[in-house]
Nucleic acid binder design. Structure first.
Lengths: 120, 120
DNA sequence: TCCGGTACCCACCTTTTGGTAAGCATGGCC
DNA sequence: GGCCATGCTTACCAAAAGGTGGGTACCGGA
């Protein structure tokens, strides 16, 4: 696999945490899975406006390797795959909460736009 | 300036926060400044093992633009420049605390090495 | 006179990251 | 037999991030 591989050595805890959350879609995936509990590949895809299939699989695989998400494959036709957060994924999401609050404040401060997603 | 420029639109608060902390050295800079209050350029450089001058200035400039650090220039010879956290930088650092804890836990779990810095 | 220390800037290159588009395996439906 | 749907993989590109090594201006000390 031609993806990244760090897992240390790290300067500090933040460094180690950033190593697993950095990636354009990872925090969003964390949110989606936290919100819905269990999601299929196509559901996640629809929930993340703009993500490509390649990126979604790539990020999900990395998060799986990092022990954040659980992947359950059902050998059916057409195939079905369900993703959910592991215990570590859930705790990471909680740890991100205060950062999220700070970000919301920042958005308000600088008056940045938010991506608007039309719920289908 | 050929650096990045986002500042929105953002999907959510985490997205907005990540926009300003992502960068190989930013969280470390945040730590250094939080630890020492005020630091000169060369002090920061010595505190961040492996950082190049170019990267350090680049990251500091971006953090200044994002309102995280304050830059005070003393027109002396040799030049002196002091960096410190703004109010927003300080609050961001606090918001990162729980993430840092999570990361420390992760380091323990996976048994990753930590970067060891020999004080010179 | 040359060297070192300060705090940079600039040009160039490599590595990493993300995006696009195509293909694949399977079986049901018409 | 052709088409659809699902959940991928692969090859190929483009853009962004990061690294290297040089130059600058100034002054003090050896």
């Amino acid at each position: 696999m031609a993806t990244k591989a760090r897992r240390g050595p790290y300067f500090c805890g933040i460094d180690a945490a950033m190593d697993v959350v950095s990636g354009k879609w990872k925090s969003l995936i964390l949110w989606e899975l936290n919100d819905h509990g269990v999601r299929r590949f196509a559901e996640l895809r629809r929930g993340l406006p703009g993500v490509s299939e390649k990126m979604l699989t790539q990020q999900l695989r990395e998060m799986e390797e990092d022990g954040l998400v659980h992947r359950e494959v059902y050998r059916e036709v057409p195939p079905r795959v369900e993703y959910s957060l592991t215990e570590h994924g859930t705790s990471l999401n909680q740890a991100l909460a205060s950062l999220g609050d700070w970000g919301v404040e920042r958005i308000r401060r600088i008056g940045a736009e938010k991506v608007t997603v039309s719920a289908s």
